[in-house]
Amino acid sequence: MTPQGLAHAVPDADADDATVIEFSRHEPEQFTVLFRRHAPHIQRYVVRRLGADAADDIVAETFLLAFRQRDRYDLARADARPWLYGIATNLIGRHRRAEIRLYRALARTGADPVTEPFTDRVDDRVSAELASRQLAAALARLSAELRDTMLLAAWSDLSYEQIAVALGVPTGTVRSRLSRARSKLRQTMGDVDPSALAEEPQ
């Protein structure tokens, strides 16, 4: 069934994203279905990267950009999450300095401005465990593309193929970026003892 010509058609509650988007081309209000469906996950992803303050604007902007580009959406893609995560990731990229600042704040002080609003107990936020601080320091040093790939893999539930769609790169690139990002994290986090590598191996 196509929505054409149906004056007040609405998609089924379990219609896939592509169907919802197709409907929304004629019934713009239907796009809110997509928002309700995916905004909670997108918001969590953005908050984890940029904190709650910046996230509201970015989440709204992600869906508004998607809304405006819905005519260009490839309806063969039933699941819209790669598209939405891709837009959100691009928008996050404009706040690269803010993101890095947050990682560095955590690495320096042990207090994470991102999770602070969500932590009830005072002693929880007094000092993050060392591993988190090292991780934050390592994330701050990753290149933007490695960080985007890595954090989508860790935080979005997208498959490699979907991450590739989200970032507009081949799947092989996602794999190689992940592999490289992981090894960089491992190096910088001291999983490999730096002192052991300070001298050339015999």
């Binding site: 709204a60 988190s132 991780l135 860790a154 491992r186």
Partner: peptide, 24 residues
Amino acid sequence: EMDLLTRFRAEVPLGVSPHAEELF
């Protein structure tokens, strides 16, 4: 590092803020 990353900032809850929805 992947497990560590999965747990990193995991206390951020799932959910959309009313303000974001309003803006949208």
